[in-house]
Amino acid sequence: AEIMKKTDFDKVASEYTKIGTISTTGEMSPLDAREDLIKKADEKGADVVVLTSGQTENKIHGTADIYKKK
């Protein structure tokens, strides 16, 4: 799966169907969080990951919607 910015995804959204939401939390780098989200998306058969939230304090927390091409 590839990560797309919401603004970029909005241009092609009609080509995809939302298949779920994924999240990651833990003591990790932003890059590790990104890789974890991609891994989870791949496991669910998603083609595209669109980040919906991200937070960093002591731990990273990120959520994303996942989509499959129609």
Rank of each mutant, 00 (worst) to 15 (best):
L37N: 01
K44H: 11
P30T: 12
G45F: 06
A46S: 03
R34P: 03
Y16S: 00
A1V: 13
Y67R: 00
F9C: 02
M28A: 07
S29C: 10
S23H: 12
A64E: 03
I60E: 10
P30I: 12
K68S: 04
K68E: 04
Q55T: 10
V50C: 03
T63W: 07
L31T: 11
E57G: 13
K68M: 06
Y16G: 00
T63I: 07
K11H: 06
I3M: 07
D10T: 06
K70V: 08
T25H: 12
A13G: 04
E2I: 15
I38F: 03
E43N: 06
V48Y: 02
D47S: 06
R34A: 09
F9I: 01
I22D: 01
E2M: 15
I22N: 00
K6I: 07
D47H: 10
A33Y: 07
A1L: 07
E35V: 12
I22A: 02
G62F: 15
A13H: 06
I38P: 00
S53Q: 11
N58H: 12
T25V: 11
K40A: 06
Q55A: 12
I22Q: 01
S29P: 06
L51G: 01
V49H: 01
H61G: 12
G54E: 15
K18W: 15
I3V: 09
K11F: 05
V49D: 01
A1C: 12
E27I: 12
K18H: 15
E35Q: 12
K59C: 14
K11I: 08
T21H: 07
G45Y: 05
V12M: 05
V48H: 00
Y16H: 00
V12R: 05
D36Y: 14
R34G: 04
G20T: 03
A41I: 01
K11E: 06
D42Y: 12
T24G: 04
I19L: 08
S14E: 09
D42T: 15
Y67I: 00
K44A: 15
S53D: 12
K18R: 09
A46Q: 00
I3C: 06
I19V: 06
E27K: 12
K44L: 15
F9H: 02
D8K: 04
K5Q: 11
A1E: 00
L51W: 09
V48M: 04
T25R: 09
A46C: 03
A41H: 00
A64R: 03
N58M: 11
I19Y: 02
D32I: 06
E15P: 01
K44Q: 13
I38E: 02
T21K: 05
M4H: 01
H61P: 09
V48P: 00
I60M: 13
L31F: 10
A64K: 02
G54M: 15
K40P: 00
A1Y: 00
D36T: 08
N58V: 10
K44D: 03
I22Y: 03
A41T: 02
V12H: 04
T24H: 04
K59Y: 15
I66C: 04
A13F: 06
S53A: 10
D32W: 08
T7A: 14
Y16Q: 00
Q55M: 13
G45E: 04
D65Y: 06
E35T: 12
G20V: 02
K5R: 12
T25L: 09
K40I: 09
E15G: 09
Q55W: 15
R34Y: 13
K18D: 00
K44T: 04
F9N: 00
T24M: 09
K69V: 04
E35P: 03
A13V: 06
E27M: 14
G62A: 15
N58E: 13
A46K: 00
S23W: 13
V12L: 06
A46N: 00
K40Y: 05
F9D: 00
E27P: 13
T24K: 02
K40N: 03
V48W: 01
L37D: 00
L31M: 11
R34Q: 08
D32Y: 07
Y67E: 01
L31E: 15
E15W: 14
H61D: 10
I66L: 11
A33H: 06
K5Y: 14
A33M: 11
P30G: 11
K70M: 07
I22H: 00
T52R: 15
K5M: 14
E2V: 15
I66W: 01
K39D: 03
K5A: 12
V50M: 02
S14R: 09
G62C: 15
D10K: 07
D8I: 04
S29R: 06
E57P: 12
T56P: 10
A64F: 15
T17R: 11
K5G: 09
G62K: 11
L37V: 03
F9S: 01
Y16A: 00
I38L: 14
V12W: 04
K69G: 03
Y67D: 00
E35K: 14
E57Q: 10
I60L: 11
K6V: 06
L31P: 08
T24D: 03
K40D: 02
G20S: 03
K6C: 07
D10A: 09
L51R: 02
D42C: 14
T63D: 08
D65G: 03
D36R: 06
V12F: 05
S14K: 11
K70P: 02
K44R: 14
I22G: 00
A13D: 02
E27H: 12
G20F: 04
K70S: 06
K6D: 07
T17S: 09
T21E: 09
K40C: 06
T17E: 10
E57K: 09
D42N: 15
T7D: 13
E35N: 14
S29M: 07
S23M: 12
L51H: 03
V48C: 05
I3G: 00
D10S: 07
K69P: 02
I19A: 02
K18G: 03
T21A: 06
V48I: 10
K11N: 06
S14P: 05
Y67S: 00
K44Y: 13
D32S: 08
T25C: 15
A13Q: 08
D65T: 07
T25S: 14
K59W: 15
K6W: 10
V50L: 04
G54H: 13
A41K: 01
D65S: 05
L37Q: 01
K69H: 10
K11L: 09
N58Q: 09
A41G: 04
D65P: 03
N58F: 10
E15M: 14
F9W: 04
K40R: 09
M4W: 11
I38N: 03
S53W: 14
M28S: 06
T7I: 11
G62V: 15
V48G: 01
T52D: 09
V48T: 02
Q55E: 13
D36V: 09
R34S: 06
Q55D: 14
Q55N: 11
A64H: 09
T24F: 13
F9R: 00
D10V: 08
M28T: 05
M4K: 03
K44I: 11
K70I: 11
D32K: 11
S29H: 08
A33W: 14
G62M: 15
K44G: 04
I3P: 03
I19R: 01
D42M: 15
E15T: 07
V12Q: 03
L51Y: 08
G54S: 13
D10R: 06
L31I: 10
G20H: 02
A64L: 05
V12E: 03
G26A: 10
K69Q: 04
K39L: 06
A46F: 01
G26V: 13
T63R: 08
K18N: 05
K5E: 15
Y16M: 00
G20K: 01
G45A: 04
K18S: 05
I60Y: 12
L37P: 00
E2S: 13
L37Y: 04
L31W: 11
E43H: 07
N58R: 07
L37C: 03
D47F: 03
L31Y: 10
G45C: 11
E2R: 15
K70C: 09
K69I: 04
D10Q: 10
G26D: 10
P30Q: 09
P30N: 12
T25Q: 11
Q55Y: 15
V49F: 02
V49I: 15
Y67P: 01
D10W: 08
R34E: 09
D42H: 13
K39R: 14
I60N: 10
D65H: 05
T25P: 08
K11M: 08
G45P: 01
N58G: 14
D8G: 01
Y67F: 07
I3E: 04
E57N: 10
A46G: 04
K70G: 05
A1R: 02
S23L: 07
K68H: 04
K39Q: 07
E27G: 13
T52Y: 08
D32F: 08
D8Q: 06
T52N: 11
D8C: 09
T24E: 03
T63A: 07
P30F: 13
L31A: 15
D32N: 08
Y67L: 01
P30A: 13
M28V: 07
I38R: 09
K70D: 04
I38Q: 06
S29N: 08
Y16F: 07
K6R: 12
E35F: 11
T17V: 13
L51K: 00
I22M: 03
P30C: 15
T63G: 04
K70T: 08
G62T: 15
A46M: 02
V49R: 02
T21M: 07
D65C: 10
L51N: 00
M28E: 06
L37R: 00
H61L: 13
F9Y: 02
V49M: 09
D36S: 09
T24R: 03
P30K: 07
V48R: 03
V48A: 04
I3L: 08
M28H: 07
K11G: 04
T21V: 08
G26R: 09
N58C: 12
M28R: 07
G62E: 11
K6T: 06
G45M: 06
T63F: 09
K44C: 15
G45T: 04
I60W: 14
I19F: 04
E35M: 14
S14W: 13
S29D: 10
L37A: 02
S29F: 06
I66N: 00
M4V: 05
E57F: 09
N58Y: 10
I3S: 02
G20Y: 03
S14F: 10
P30D: 14
